[in-house]
Structures are given as structure tokens and as C-alpha cells.
Design a binder for these strands. Structure first.
Lengths: 210, 210
DNA sequence: CGTACTTTTGAATCGCATCAAATCTGGTGG
DNA sequence: CCACCAGATTTGATGCGATTCAAAAGTACG
């Protein structure tokens, strides 16, 4: 148990760079294996835990009136649904996109830890602020009217030096970009043909990085 | 000065319901009148202050490659650019959309207040979490493919009981919805003609509120 | 080796963007 | 008070791009 805890400790600390997870909070946590497509919680469920993704991928999704999934957030390493800490019930579904594992922190222990550990609190606040900025960037992207613009924007903001290594299928990427998968395939093809993109499997590079 | 401070105090406290702004932070604050279209700060500027809108409207905007404005957030009463507290420089422009006034809190004093006042800190964290959820809702809206869906979604999430009172021009609303103003006008017209909306000036009501 | 899912392409359609232009409106200065 | 002006509102015509529906080929996994 101690070994597992120290495993969490190092992983979680890597993510929240400014501090460590307080010992007592770690001791109250629970390691949860997840299988692909598993729904961890649903919109409306009472908030029982704060989740930290260790491996695999967990998505924050809502559904439109046609039942289509809208992906609001993807977490492959780090907290997910941070905003639920202050809420009574979840505002989205949490769905695993891959097999993996996560840590569940009881809400009560989490709040207690924030109250009593200043470093942890600072890290949490920073985490929330970063999250706000990320989501704003996502809004900015969805505000662009063409598929090509959204693709460029994605590579510029999510990649490094105009290069992105995709960590999801193109179909899933299309959903994140607010496009149908067909529109994404065609836009990628055209951008490649026109010399704006260099595509090699999951590695996609902008030819004219600004 | 005392009177002005207590004026801020009541306004700011109304917004941040869970606490008060600490006295020392208020004393370090500065009242700033703003005129319409004034740019308060630009993307890339060093973060000098945290802004709280008292009256008027301030928008958080970025510009796409064509120079078109993308509105990421509108504040008519409350903090704006909260996420900049943890950053070195602003990540968006702040532009006034109306004449009004705001309070500028020096970043240093703000951080100090968060460190030393537990109630204020809790309120701030809650504020950030709420902001995350709001922006996620905005993403969800922009992920919808049709103008009609975005309009309905807006009324359902931003209005009360299926009724929204617009606090901005339709042109500005169109930008917030990620549409051209023409597309918004036409969609509104069609929704009204088809009996889905009841439009009376700035009051817009859903006919089939779910 | 079969099955489920992704990737890819095709064809048809629809809705939104774009360009244009005619009111309408609120606010300003004469 | 009125003329004027800038911006918002509204309608029209046109074209493009994304959606939709369909289907084939590729791929991963048990």
C-alpha cells in the first residue's frame, strides 16, 4: 500500500508541479482501474470524488439533444472535472476512452486538504486558472469558421513548434474540433495537397509555422 | 475615499457572495473610469492588475488571423480575466464595450490577500471553478452545428425559465454564438415564424422550454 | 479469421458565410 | 429641434464548405 501510494505521489506531483499531494489526502485516496468506454459518473450524480487520471484517457462529455457526444475535455494525465469540487453534482458525464487507471480522492478529504495545506491550495488554484485558459483557447478555436483554421489553431496551441503528435483517433479529434470526421479528413487532405501540412501518421506539422 | 471604498465593498461583495474583499486589498485598489471601445490591456502585456467591472461592459477578446474579434468572455458585473492572476502576461485583450467603471486591484496585493484571508481564498477558488463550468458550457454551445441549436442552448443555459433578456446588440450576440450577424437574424426570424421563439425586443422566450 | 471500428472517398444537399444594399436607430452637433 | 452620421438591423442573391448519407478499404483485437 505504501508502495502504491508513493507511486501515486510521484505521478501526481509530476503533474501538479508546485507542490505535493498532502499525505493524509493520499491515504484517503483509492486506486480505480478503468476499462474502455466505462462511464465513471453521469451528469446529475452527486459529487463523491475528485478524479486524477494516471493512465489511459478519460473524457468529460455532454450530449446534445440528438444524443451526440460533445467532448468538453480529455485528460490523459491529471485531474479531470476539477470544477466539480465546488459543486453538489457533476455537470457532465465522465467516460473512459481507453483502458487505464485513476485515483479517486474523496471530496471531503480533498476540501480538508485544501483548507490545511497552503502549498497544495496554491497548486490547486493555479491548476484551475490554467484550466480556464485552456478552455478559453478551446472556445477561441470553435469560434473559427473553417475546418482548416481550426486545425491550424489546434496545432499552434496544443503542439510544440508547429508540430502535434495526436494522442487520439482522427474521428475523436474531429469531435473535439467541432467537425464531422469526414470534414476533418478532407480538410487534412487538402491542407497536405496544398503544402500547408506535413502529415506522417499521428505526427502532423505546419509547413508555415508563424 | 472611505465612502468610495465602501461603495466598492458593497458592489464587490454582492458579486462574490461567500465573502468580502479584505480591507487591505480594497485600500490598495484603484477606481478606473472607462470609455467605450477603450482597450484596457493587450495580449502580451505584463499583468499589472486584476480587474473587477462595476458598470458598463468589458470583453475578453482575441483576434483571428484575419483580425476579426473573437469574444471569449463578457463581464458586466464581476471579475474579468481571473486566470491572469497566475500568469506573467495577459493572454487576451481587454476591451470596453460600453462606458463604465471598474476597480483595478494590484496583483501583488491580490496574491497577498489570497494568502492571508481564508474566506476570500475560498470565494476566489469557487469563482474560478464557476468560470471553468461557464466556459465549458460555452464550448458545448459552439460545438453545436446549427444556428438554431446554439440559440436554444444559449437561452436554456443563460436565461431563466426559457427566457433571456439580451444585454447586448444582436450583432455582438452573433459573435458570441460563433455566427455572422446575418445568420443570427435569419435564424431568429425562422424560429419565430415556426413558433419556437417569442421575440419582443430584447426579451426572447422559448416556446417549448424543456 | 471474423468482427467492430476507423479511415477514406463519393455524391447530393443544406446551411452558413459573403457581398451588397436598403432601412432603422441612437446619439451628436449645429 | 432638426439634420446628420455611425452603427445596428434587416433582407436579398450567390457560392462555398460542411453535413449527411452511403459505401469501400484498412486496421486492431480477441
Amino acid at each position: 500500500m505504501t508502495m502504491i501510494n508513493s507511486y501515486w505521489h510521484s505521478l501526481v506531483s509530476t503533474q501538479m508541479k508546485l507542490t505535493r499531494i498532502p499525505r493524509r489526502l493520499l491515504e484517503a485516496a483509492e486506486l480505480v482501474p478503468i476499462r474502455s468506454t466505462q462511464t465513471l459518473c453521469r451528469k446529475g450524480d452527486a459529487v463523491r470524488g475528485i478524479f486524477f487520471v494516471l493512465t489511459g484517457e478519460v473524457r468529460l462529455v455532454r450530449r446534445d439533444t440528438n444524443g451526440r457526444e460533445i467532448v468538453l475535455h480529455r485528460a490523459r494525465s491529471g485531474f479531470i472535472a476539477e470544477a466539480s469540487l465546488g459543486a453538489k453534482c457533476y455537470h457532465c458525464d465522465l467516460v473512459a476512452a481507453e483502458k487505464g487507471s485513476l485515483v479517486r480522492f474523496p471530496v471531503y478529504s480533498f476540501r480538508e486538504a485544501l483548507r490545511e495545506d497552503a502549498l497544495f491550495r496554491d497548486a490547486w488554484t493555479t491548476q484551475l486558472a490554467i484550466e480556464v485558459m485552456k478552455v478559453r483557447t478551446q472556445c477561441e478555436r470553435l469560434g473559427l469558421h473553417s475546418a482548416a483554421d481550426r486545425i491550424s489553431h489546434y496545432i499552434e496551441t496544443e503542439g510544440k513548434d508547429g508540430i502535434i503528435i495526436l494522442t487520439q483517433s482522427r474521428k475523436a479529434w474531429a469531435a473535439e474540433l467541432g467537425l464531422t470526421h469526414e470534414a476533418l479528413y478532407r480538410a487534412l487532405r487538402r491542407l497536405q495537397d496544398d503544402g500547408f501540412l506535413l502529415i506522417d501518421g499521428d505526427r502532423i506539422a505546419l509547413r508555415n509555422p508563424k
